[in-house]
């Protein structure tokens, strides 16, 4: 069967079925621990106490709920966004993982093949991280007590190093776009004229729009290839 047909007629319909279904099944399951402690020990805050905490959380995050799926969709496509909404840890784990997997497999980002490999990579990362976090929950404290302080200190710098590596991976695909993206990020992160969620939007969609203008003028050297 043709590539287009397999992807659009077989893969995406399955993703559209299972993605929302698992999110909906997952919603009530997340309250089992809370209900258990309430039922077995009769420990529960008052409604207004829960609403106070919930209200603070929503006040900070309401925009993030919407901005993240929209901003990550151009990268991850439909399957990836369903997976990120269920399993989280997107910029620190799933995106870097999907990016390196596509690089290693030698598929092009944004194509159907790329989307298949990215979906596969995110599935693998969900299995691996769940197991590692489980082992960590069982014995993290015990192991960490035996690590030298220097190693523990180095863990403070894991995230910046991951961000740098993935930025570097994409920088070599287009130095010009990369520098523009970084300039946008530096400006808005430094002057703080926008809330954090808006900076994500501006960086992602600003970079896309600028690259579209450059691409249409043949300034990215890609148009002629296609």
């Amino acid at each position: 069967m043709e590539v287009e047909n397999v992807y659009e007629k077989e893969f995406i319909p399955q993703v559209k079925k299972w993605g929302p279904l698992l999110l909906i099944i997952g919603m009530p399951l997340t309250f089992i621990p809370a209900i258990y402690v309430w039922w077995a020990y009769n420990i529960i805050p008052s409604g207004s106490q829960i609403m106070a905490g919930f209200g603070l959380t929503v006040a900070v995050l309401w925009a993030v709920y919407i901005v993240e799926p929209i901003s990550y969709y151009p990268i991850l496509g439909m399957p990836g966004v369903y997976m990120m909404c269920l399993a989280g840890n997107i910029s620190n784990l799933r995106l870097p993982c999907a990016a390196v997997a596509q690089e290693s497999a030698g598929v092009t980002f944004g194509t159907k093949e790329g989307s298949i490999i990215a979906t596969l990579a995110m599935s693998v990362s969900m299995l691996v991280s769940t197991i590692i976090i489980f082992l960590g929950a069982l014995g993290a404290a015990a192991v960490l007590n035996h690590l030298p302080p220097f190693v523990l200190h180095a863990f403070d710098y894991i995230l910046p190093a991951i961000f740098g590596a993935i930025f570097g991976q994409f920088l070599i695909k287009g130095y010009l776009i990369g520098i523009i993206a970084l300039a946008l990020g530096l400006f808005f992160n430094y002057y703080k004229v926008l809330p954090d969620w808006a900076v994500l939007l501006v960086c992602v969609f600003g970079t896309i729009l600028i690259s579209r203008i450059l691409w249409e003028r043949g300034m990215l050297g890609k148009k002629s290839e296609n």
Binding site: S71, Y72, P74, I75, S91, L95, A99, T108, F109, G110, T111, G114, L159, P160, F163, G164, I166, F167, F170, L171, K173, G174, I177, G178, A181, L182, L184, G185, L186, F188, N189, Y190, V199, L200, C203, V204, F205, G206, T207, I208, I210, S211, R212, W215, L220, K222, K223, N226
Partner: peptide
Amino acid sequence: IAFLPVLTSAAMLGVFAKMGSGELIA
């Protein structure tokens, strides 16, 4: 369609430029 790969790379650079610029400023 030919622009989609460029678009995806640009989006990725946007995300990690946002994260990275925070690290550079830190």
